[in-house]
Design a protein around this nucleic acid. Structure first.
Lengths: 204, 204
DNA sequence: CCACCAACATTCATCACTGTATGTATCTTG
DNA sequence: CAAGATACATACAGTGATGAATGTTGGTGG
């Protein structure tokens, strides 16, 4: 039954595909390795060859997708970007999510199909790290934008504005996925984001 | 071992308390009825006397808490409320959540400690119903507010504004719970909500 | 005051899942 | 072309959870 390297790689992908589908449909905890193996057309032996256990398999499945939060990783450029650039980046992230089905499935799994506790906790490290990066980037931008101008409605609480912005974007993504695309993510998102950033845009 | 009615009711509450704590700490799927019984100081027999199974127990545990979304149930009053009233109701809901620890735990369980699939699906009916009520109430208010005035920045897409508002509030609650109260819910919430509603307030 | 039933505890049978150990056939490398 | 490593399949033991069946004791209605 020995397969060539290429075939083995395909087997691995097939396992990850089956896991992604079953995790999405039935939840992570409710899906057994036997079910995954059957759905992929093989036995548990194949899974234990390619992965240590379920958590390891889960991690690798998540790693195949690009998370929308990762659009906010700063390119290690000079200065904190402007609020306008932040809005553009945000809308890019939304548009990307709306266009990529794998990301939609993986994000849905991460948010509604698994429990953030116990052995699964380390498997969530990537998402939490991406969230954290996004959060600090947003805070930096609003801090910078509000410290530069003396006039304005409120200049003291850039942190509150940044927190609100982050929550709004997070809620947007969450509700869009939960509602099964009940509204236009980019349209509603653009409108919401512009309302939030309107007071803090430099030029016209 | 026969207990009086009052003692039996206390036993029932003790089981629900233990379930709430263990679900919160370890997740719903990862918590067994044996663990719950042990934490409550009794055996599985007691649980099977008071509840049909785990899903039934879960439902009753959720039912002990008042969900913040339920603050939006319209009091069957005359007309759709104003945007200002909506803001006040929203902040009330946030303040209530921030003040009630049981609601915080139950909401956290509902959002991060269980999988929204399979046999658990019917147990989520209450939360989804509350969400839906909140969503339509918000849509009604913005529809009414924007149809009444001919002038304004945009009057066509009240739906998009309502969706954005709902997402923002939802994200606010979600991130506050996930971050373990990393920011002031009522402060950040008030600021965010007022920004979103500023364009749609009637009077000064 | 006694029979009965509520409120549990205990026991049992069953099953599904995990992890590992072993088998095996095929590719691959010297 | 032989020998070993690879890529699985199969078999096994162990664990723990569920649900039901049964046991037990003490409140409670008649």
């Amino acid at each position: 039954m020995r397969r060539t390297k290429c075939e083995a790689a395909q087997t691995r992908e097939a396992i990850l595909d089956a896991a992604e589908t079953l995790f999405f449909e039935n939840g992570v905890a409710a899906t057994s390795l036997s079910q995954i193996a059957a759905a992929a057309g093989m036995t548990r032996g194949a899974i234990y060859w390619h992965f240590e256990n379920k958590v390891d398999l889960f991690k690798d499945m998540v790693d195949r997708a690009r998370l929308p939060q990762e659009a906010f990783f700063h390119d290690s450029r000079h200065e904190p970007a402007s609020v306008r650039e932040l809005c553009e980046k945000t809308i890019e992230a939304l548009a990307f999510l709306a266009s990529d089905e794998r990301t939609q499935r993986v994000m849905t799994i991460l948010m509604f199909r698994c429990e953030y506790v116990g052995e699964m906790q380390p498997a969530m490290a990537r998402r939490e790290s991406a969230d954290e990066h996004m959060r600090v980037e947003i805070a930096r931008i609003f801090d910078h934008a509000l410290s530069n101008r003396a006039t304005g409605p409120k200049q003291c609480d850039a942190r509150a504005i940044a927190s609100g912005y982050f929550c709004a974007v997070s809620g947007l993504i969450t509700e869009w996925l939960k509602s099964d695309h009940a509204f236009d993510l980019v349209n509603v998102g653009s409108q919401l984001i512009e309302t939030l950033a309107a007071d803090h845009l430099e030029g016209a």
